Amino acid sequence: MKTQFTDHAKTRFQQRGINRSVIDYIFQYGDKEHAPGGAFKISLTKRNKARLISSLKNEIKKIERSSDVIIVQKNNIIITGYHK
């Protein structure tokens, strides 16, 4: 399901320098709490922020380790893979 934004939200995010990746992180790692009118507030706690940072550091390590990997493909079929 794709998240929809009101024009107001789009304007405020732009004015406040909040980009889409930040919003995605908050949805993925944030805590929900009820807000007036049946809405929800979603925010990152210190604990969840630490989890997110740790997860991103692990992804960076994977990327760094993959820089010398070569994958051989033919006709959309992966044949082999090796280190340079």
Rank of each mutant, 00 (worst) to 15 (best):
A35C: 07
T80V: 05
L44M: 00
A9S: 06
Q73A: 13
I71Y: 03
D7P: 15
N19W: 12
I42E: 01
E64L: 05
N19D: 15
V22L: 12
Q73N: 12
K46H: 12
H83M: 09
S54I: 04
I23E: 06
K57V: 12
S67K: 14
K61T: 08
I60H: 03
H8D: 12
I71F: 06
M1E: 14
V72D: 10
S55V: 01
E33Y: 01
I70E: 09
I18P: 02
I23L: 11
N19F: 14
K41M: 06
R16W: 02
Q15M: 04
L56S: 02
N48M: 02
V69Q: 05
F27K: 11
S54M: 07
H8R: 14
H83F: 10
R47L: 09
V22R: 09
F5G: 05
I63V: 06
G37H: 04
Q73V: 14
V69K: 08
A35L: 08
G30K: 00
Y29S: 00
G37V: 03
G17K: 02
F27L: 13
I23D: 04
Q28D: 11
K57W: 09
E33T: 03
S54V: 05
Q15P: 02
N58S: 11
L52A: 01
S54T: 08
R16A: 02
R12C: 02
I60K: 04
H8T: 14
V69D: 05
K84R: 08
S55L: 01
I26A: 00
N19I: 14
K32M: 07
H8V: 14
K2G: 07
I78H: 06
Q14R: 15
E59F: 10
K41H: 06
I77L: 15
S67G: 12
L44C: 00
S67Y: 10
R47D: 09
Q73D: 11
Y25F: 06
Y25D: 02
E64A: 04
D31T: 13
K61L: 09
I60T: 03
K62H: 07
K84M: 07
I79E: 10
G81H: 12
S43K: 05
F40L: 13
D24W: 10
A39Q: 13
Y82Q: 01
Y29P: 01
T3I: 15
G17N: 02
T11R: 13
T11C: 08
V22S: 09
K61E: 09
N75A: 05
